[in-house]
Simulated scan of single mutants.
Amino acid sequence: MYVRSIYATGDPAELDGVAEALRTEGRELLSAQPGFRGMGVFVDREIGKLLVGSWWEDEASRQASYENLSERRTEMMAPFAQTMTVDNWEAAVARRADTLGPGAVFRLVRIDVEPSGIDLLVDTFRDTSLPGVQKIPGLAGLSLLIDRGRGRAAIGALYTDRDALTASRGAVAAVRGEITAKARVSTSSVEEFEVVLATAVPHA
């Protein structure tokens, strides 16, 4: 599967209106596009950050949807977004629970990796880290996204609630250290968001 992420920052006072528009009209527009497989909307209301991820069956569907919805997407984001970055990813690993209730939260870890080391990172994550991480209480979904051309990766983790996310920080920090040592990568950022929408996606 393939993923497009949109990361925007702006005035926190304008965030909720745009997030709600994406949750409702945005989801409807994306669902009508061929190859659509799922969507997530995540917010940091205190700082004013918005993260939107959409999942696609293939690269062609991802690109076509971007072009088809370009004008409407710009209109929907305009009230909030003062900065906006669009990235494209390949989903190397995706594990997701079927349902999430109110209060769910999301952690995003951005990783820098040499393009030649992408496969080692994927293997390390899938074979060494994933079995232990999946046992963390409250973990409701996990993904590893990769960008082979630019030497980047992103690990996304869904938790059932804020308490579960908070309790997981120590164990997850240890996993990051393990991945860093075995796959020779570096962590560039760790961010946490509230979940506005997270639909189920097929496993990868």
Rank of each mutant, 00 (worst) to 15 (best):
A183G: 07
D161P: 11
T166E: 14
I155F: 03
R162L: 14
G141V: 07
E194D: 09
S189H: 03
V133E: 14
V201I: 04
E192I: 03
R126D: 14
D119P: 08
L165C: 02
D163W: 06
K182A: 05
R152E: 07
Y159H: 07
D163A: 14
S129E: 07
L139G: 04
R169Y: 06
I155Y: 04
L130F: 15
V122F: 06
L108S: 15
T124P: 07
L108A: 15
G138V: 12
D123A: 14
A174V: 06
T124N: 10
F193S: 02
T128G: 02
S116Q: 15
S168E: 03
S188E: 11
R107A: 04
K182L: 11
R110P: 01
R176F: 05
G138N: 13
D161H: 09
S186K: 05
R110A: 12
D119V: 07
I111C: 00
R162T: 12
L120M: 13
R176T: 00
Y159T: 02
R169N: 05
L145H: 12
F193D: 01
G117S: 14
F193W: 06
K135D: 13
A181V: 10
S189Q: 05
K135F: 10
D163I: 11
V133G: 10
Q134P: 00
P202T: 00
G117E: 13
L142D: 08
G132N: 13
A164V: 04
R126N: 13
G170R: 07
A140W: 02
S168G: 07
D163F: 09
P131F: 12
A173E: 10
D119R: 13
F125P: 10
R110G: 09
E178R: 08
E114Y: 08
L165R: 08
L108H: 08
E114M: 11
A173S: 13
E192K: 00
T128A: 12
S186T: 10
D123R: 13
S129A: 15
